[in-house]
Amino acid sequence: ALTSEEAQANKIKRQAADRLVTMRLLKAMEVDGPWRLTDLGREYVQRLAQ
């Protein structure tokens, strides 16, 4: 079982991923993931790395 801290951390990650989907940086392969970068997401990560 998860501790409440772990459950809260998971919830925050899920919310962050959902937000990235609405920003078209990630796409969910199924309803509950896994997720992949979109073309736009790949461009963003490349800019981050520079």
Binding site: L2, A16, L26
Partner: peptide, 25 residues
């Protein structure tokens, strides 16, 4: 983006796919 979101983006980039635990019901 937030640091959390950037972290997820980098994780997805490095692994190819991003897997997150399913929330407890």
């Amino acid at each position: 983006l937030t640091s959390e979101q950037n972290q997820l983006m980098i994780q997805a980039s490095q692994s190819g796919t991003l897997h997150l635990p399913i929330e407890d019901p």
